[in-house]
Design a protein around this nucleic acid. Structure first.
Length: 644
RNA sequence: GCCGAAAUAGCUCAGUUGGCCAGAGCAGCUGAUUUGUAAUCAGCGGGUCGGGGGUUCGAAUCCCUCUUUCGGCUCCA
């Protein structure tokens, strides 16, 4: 007998070789029907795999993330079986579960799959699923596995097997499809009752762009049709928040083929929004001891040779432009740091001056591959809310924490709660890739880790993700449909101060090298505004709304009063306009609601007579009548609360 | 850059298998109406069907090519 400890810490005795499924059955038939896999001592196992010794066991159902993963992983196999049946001779790469669903990378040879084929694949999957096929786990020797896939002529599987150790190789067989797989899988296909093939895309084999591009088929599955329908509805709703759609509807920005792809044009309302954000951050930075500078949009190539960027990124940048007479070469500014280094060196510094914090909303241009451009989140010309802090080595940690305060302050003011922090350190196995001494790297890396700890912030640590010149801390958020984007960044740099030979006089009257911290709390105005739009679905917080109020006169007779109100509100720095179109009030309200203007002010005979306003809040409705002063004060209070 | 898909009026879209002068709603313009919390009515203008080339008696529709956009991959100082 073996002892099984369940999550409630109760201990039950079972014969050796008991399975998760049998344990579930011993508790209740209902549980047994719902169990998808079993977590055995922190490893997810097939529910049908025998447990041979004492263990902690958690039975996993659809309500557990690992339960869902198991369903999706098994669904990937099911889809592969369907594809093999429909497209005989297909070769298979890998087919994992992902955050929402699963995919399988396949090589169809000369054939291809398009949207029109999805239905047939779905139907085949459901047909196979209804057979309640079992997933059978088989341990196999390396030689046996190689022989099996050689016979099957599956070169991708053979490559994968060659990287595996003998004795750790398992196959899973379900119906007519056998796959090289670590598992775990469902007991059988009876759980898979609703499937959807979502999209196809190209994907390089093993993520290497020099290797063959396979066809990646994405799908998702659910135990019930109702859950699939709900998921698809949710996806549709999320698409309505897409910043590209809202940016067009709300007239925030546009693109022009003639200007060039990846080069956003900010429309008046978008520019107003962006300017608000810039003003807000400038004020925060002023209080934190930053000084603003302005530098040109181009720089001599020598500048980037000094910084090292030319050697590293020159080929992948917009190519230098030349002066017609002298033949001098200039590059479009791809980053602001070299310019700021030159500002630092424009006068001598004492240790008493440091830290020097140089800030600029600097517009930079980077050549992004055409297929990478994406709305406002990935563009070729963008403005960084950049600043470079030049400080003494002993000030790094404190400065780093100061920057984190600014980032967190901004996220709080904009109600960003779902961000994650990522610490990027150097790859310890490939130190050659990085510039700078071991000692400096270790100092900088520990400064970041300690600062994050001191702030009580949760952060993931990624080895090998550091920039070539230093480690960094990035803040990531998700867009409407779940894609991750990097916003704010804080990077320590020991490299540029060397290359630009930056120095300060210490209290020993010797020359010392400052440390540089690059930081951009928003990241770029473009990407930040994009994420902000999706975050609030276009309903900006009052202090940022391009128009805070629209005044709606009931008829032509009250347009003068409406204009007077607008003027009075303007004295309170409240932005708005009068809708004096020859339309009914209902129409004006509808249009203001669709424009997502936070407040509507309706004025007619009654309001003009008693010098008052009828207030309507966007998305809420009629708030009743208020005096102009009371309304203005209410707005000002609401704004103050948000930006403090 | 790579794989796949798409591009019709300012916007959202219809336009079967090639065949009247390419349509609708919204927006716009003109007029009527003077309006009270999510769409007043009528009339009018607007398209080289993304650009170029080809097949055909005939192309928005089929083929080639370029551009842009979308979904991924790769990349991201």
């Amino acid at each position: 007998m073996i002892q099984i400890t369940l999550p409630d810490n109760s201990i039950r005795e079972y014969p050796e070789g008991i399975t998760g499924l049998e344990i579930a059955r011993s508790i209740s038939e209902g549980l047994a029907r719902n169990v998808l896999a079993a977590k055995v001592d922190d490893q997810v196992w097939d529910a049908t795999r025998p447990i041979m010794k004492n263990a902690h066991v958690k039975l996993l159902t659809w309500n557990d993330a690992e339960g869902k993963s198991t369903v999706w992983h098994s669904s990937a196999h099911l889809m592969a079986e369907a594809i093999e049946a429909l497209y005989p001779g297909t070769k298979f790469g890998i087919g994992p579960d992902i955050e929402n669903g699963f995919y399988y990378d396949i090589d169809l040879g000369e054939r291809s799959i398009s949207d029109a084929d999805f239905k047939a694949i779905e139907d085949k999957m459901l047909e196979l699923a209804r057979k309640d096929q079992k997933y059978l786990r088989k341990e196999i020797s390396k030689a046996g596995a190689l022989e099996f896939f050689t016979t099957k002529n599956d070169e991708y599987k053979l490559e994968l097997i060659n990287d595996l150790q003998d004795g750790e190789i398992t196959l899973y067989e379900s119906g007519a499809f056998t796959d090289l797989c670590r598992g775990p899988h469902l007991p059988d296909t009876s759980v898979i009752r609703a499937v959807k093939v979502l999209s196809v895309a190209g994907a390089y084999w093993r993520g290497d762009e020099k290797r063959k591009q396979l066809t990646r088929v994405y799908g998702i599955s659910f135990p019930k049709q109702k859950e699939l329908t709900e998921y698809l509805t949710l996806l549709e709703e999320a698409k309505k928040r897409d910043h590209r759609k809202l940016g067009k509807e709300l007239e925030l920005f546009t693109f022009s083929q003639r200007v060039g792809s990846g080069l956003p044009l900010w429309l008046p309302k978008g520019a107003a929004l962006r300017e608000r954000l810039e003003r807000f951050l400038k004020e925060v930075q002023r209080k934190a001891g930053y000084v603003q500078v302005i530098t040109p949009h181009i720089g001599n190539v020598e500048l980037y040779k000094t910084s090292g960027h030319f050697q590293k990124y020159g080929k992948d940048s917009f190519q230098p432009i030349k002066t017609p007479v002298e033949g001098e070469e200039f590059m479009l500014k791809p980053m602001n740091c070299p310019h700021h280094c030159e500002i630092y060196t424009s006068k001598p510094h004492s240790y008493k001056d440091l830290p020097v914090r140089i800030a600029e909303f600097g517009t930079v241009y980077r050549y992004e591959q055409s297929g990478e451009l994406h709305g406002l989140t990935r563009v070729r010309g963008f403005t960084q809310d950049d600043a470079h802090i030049f400080c003494r080595p002993d000030q790094v940690k404190e400065e780093f924490m100061g920057v984190m305060d600014i980032v967190l302050h901004i996220f709080r003011a904009l109600d960003f709660k779902d961000f994650t922090a990522q610490i990027s350190l150097r790859d310890p196995n490939d130190k050659e890739k990085y510039i700078g001494s071991d000692e400096n790297w270790e100092k900088a890396e520990s400064a970041i880790v300690e600062a994050v700890e001191a702030k009580g912030m949760k952060a993931t640590i990624e080895m090998g993700e550091a920039a070539f010149y230093g480690p960094k801390l990035d803040f990531m958020v998700r867009d409407a449909i779940g894609r991750k984007w990097q916003l704010g960044t804080i990077q320590v740099d020991y490299n540029l101060p060397e290359r630009f030979e930056l120095e300060y006089a210490g209290n020993d009257n010797q020359k010392h090298r400052p440390v540089m911290i690059h930081r951009a709390p928003f990241g770029s105005m473009e990407r930040f505004v994009a994420v902000l739009i999706e975050h609030c679905a276009g309903k900006f917080p009052l202090w940022l709304a391009p128009e805070q109020v629209v005044i709606l006169p009931i008829s032509e007779k009250y347009v003068n009063y409406a204009k007077k109100v607008l003027h009075l509100l303007d004295n309170y720095e409240i932005r708005g306009r009068v809708d004096d179109r020859n339309e009914k009030t209902g129409k004006k309200i509808r249009d203001a609601e669709l424009d997502k203007v936070p407040y509507m002010v309706i004025v007619g005979e009654k309001e003009e007579n008693e010098n008052s306003l009828s207030i309507r809040k966007q998305g809420v409705g009629d708030l009743g009548t208020q005096s102009i002063e009371a309304f203005a004060t209410m707005m000002k209070d609401e704004i103050k609360k948000m930006t403090e």
